[in-house]
Measured scan of single mutants.
Amino acid sequence: SDLEELEKFAKTFKQRRIKLGFTQGDVGLAMGKLYGNDFSQTTISRFEALNLSFKNMCKLKPLLEKWLNDAESSP
């Protein structure tokens, strides 16, 4: 289901973010620079904790996926 997908992604996202050495705040700032939407550390934290509305989670997921792919592919 969509919800299970989101839960899986949130977990994976957190693990990969930590492995890359980024804080939640770093992610929020980087996404602001890249996509012009500033995200607070709290928002990233709540995403990882599945603590946002389903609609908000769905809106954030593609942006976070893109950020993660970019972060992992940059030298």
Results as ranks from 00 to 15, higher is better:
S1P: 05
S1F: 08
L3R: 15
L3F: 09
E5P: 04
E5S: 14
E5I: 11
E5N: 10
E5Y: 03
E5G: 09
E5Q: 12
L6F: 04
F9V: 02
K11H: 15
T12R: 11
R16L: 15
R16V: 03
I18F: 03
I18N: 06
K19A: 03
L20K: 02
G21M: 02
G21S: 02
T23S: 14
Q24W: 02
D26R: 03
D26N: 05
V27I: 03
G28R: 04
L29G: 09
L29H: 08
L29R: 13
L29Y: 08
L29I: 13
K33G: 15
N37I: 10
N37K: 11
N37D: 14
N37R: 14
D38N: 14
F39S: 08
Q41Y: 08
Q41N: 14
Q41C: 08
I44P: 00
I44N: 00
S45R: 11
S45H: 07
S45N: 12
S45V: 08
S45C: 14
R46P: 00
R46Y: 07
R46V: 02
R46F: 03
R46C: 03
R46I: 01
F47W: 03
F47D: 00
F47K: 00
F47V: 03
E48C: 00
E48L: 01
E48I: 00
E48F: 01
E48H: 00
E48Q: 00
A49L: 04
A49F: 03
A49S: 15
A49P: 03
A49V: 13
L50M: 11
L50S: 14
L50H: 15
L50W: 07
L50E: 05
N51K: 15
N51Q: 12
N51T: 13
N51S: 14
N51Y: 05
L52K: 01
L52S: 04
L52M: 12
S53H: 04
S53W: 00
S53G: 13
S53I: 02
S53P: 10
F54K: 13
F54G: 09
F54V: 11
F54A: 13
F54Q: 11
F54C: 08
F54I: 12
K55M: 09
K55Q: 15
K55S: 13
K55N: 05
K55L: 12
K55C: 10
N56L: 12
N56M: 14
N56W: 13
N56Y: 11
N56Q: 15
N56I: 10
M57W: 03
M57Y: 02
M57S: 11
M57L: 11
M57A: 11
C58R: 12
C58N: 12
C58Y: 13
C58H: 09
C58T: 07
K59P: 01
K59T: 12
K59R: 10
K59F: 15
L60P: 00
L60Y: 06
L60F: 07
L60Q: 04
K61F: 03
K61N: 01
P62K: 10
P62V: 06
P62A: 05
L63N: 11
L63P: 07
L63F: 04
L63G: 08
L63H: 13
L63S: 09
L64A: 04
L64Q: 01
L64Y: 04
L64M: 07
E65T: 06
E65P: 02
E65F: 06
E65Y: 04
E65M: 14
E65A: 08
K66A: 09
K66R: 11
K66V: 08
K66H: 07
K66S: 06
W67K: 02
W67F: 12
W67V: 04
W67P: 01
W67E: 01
L68V: 09
L68P: 01
L68S: 03
L68N: 01
L68K: 01
N69H: 15
N69T: 14
N69Q: 14
N69Y: 07
N69W: 13
N69D: 14
D70F: 09
D70Q: 12
D70M: 07
D70A: 09
D70T: 15
A71I: 08
A71H: 15
A71G: 05
A71V: 13
A71L: 13
A71W: 08
A71D: 03
E72G: 07
E72N: 12
E72H: 03
S73M: 07
S73F: 08
S73L: 08
S73W: 05
S74F: 07
S74Y: 07
S74N: 06
S74M: 06
P75M: 09
P75K: 06
P75H: 09
P75G: 13
P75F: 05
